[in-house]
Computed example of a mutant assay.
Amino acid sequence: MKIDILDFLGISDQICPMHVVIDAEGKILAAGPTLKKLRPETEWVGSSFFDIFDLSRPRWVQSTADLIKTAGSKLHLNFREAPQTGLKGVLAPLPSGQGAFINMSFGISVLEAVRDYDLTSADFSPTDLTIEMLYLVEAKSAAMEASRQLNLRLQGAKIAAEEQAFTDTLTGLKNRRAMDHILNRLIASGRDFALMHVDLDFFKEVNDTLGHAAGDTVLQHVAKLMVQCTRQNDTVARVGGDEFVLIFEGLVDRIQLSGIARRLISSIEEPIPFGDRSCNISASAGTALSSAFAAVEDGALLLHQADVALYAAKNAGRARHFFYQPGMEGAEAS
Rank of each mutant, 00 (worst) to 15 (best):
F8C: 11
A214H: 06
K204M: 06
K174Q: 11
Y135P: 00
A178W: 03
A223E: 01
G211D: 03
L303Q: 04
F203V: 02
D168R: 03
L91M: 14
A100R: 01
V45F: 02
L257P: 03
Y311P: 01
D192S: 14
S105R: 07
A292W: 05
M18H: 09
R262A: 06
T42W: 15
A142D: 13
E41K: 15
M226S: 11
T171G: 08
P58Q: 04
T230C: 15
L129N: 11
D307T: 06
L200Y: 04
L154V: 15
V114F: 11
H221Q: 13
V218Q: 00
M226R: 07
V198A: 05
D51S: 15
R185M: 07
T169H: 11
I52K: 06
A283E: 06
A309F: 02
R153L: 09
Q62L: 09
R318P: 07
E112W: 12
I260P: 04
S282Q: 05
M179C: 12
L170H: 04
E41P: 10
Q14V: 15
L183P: 03
S12M: 07
A160K: 05
F8H: 15
E297L: 06
S284V: 08
G330H: 12
V137E: 13
V245F: 06
G46F: 12
E249L: 10
Q228K: 15
I68V: 12
I28T: 05
K174E: 10
D216P: 02
L55M: 04
R59W: 05
S266I: 05
V296G: 00
S121V: 15
G86K: 14
K158G: 02
G190A: 09
V45D: 00
K69E: 12
F106P: 06
Y324A: 02
N207A: 07
L55T: 09
H181L: 15
Y324G: 00
L152V: 08
M1W: 14
E145G: 00
E81N: 11
D180T: 11
I15H: 03
V110C: 05
Q232F: 12
G259C: 09
L67D: 08
F323D: 07
I131V: 12
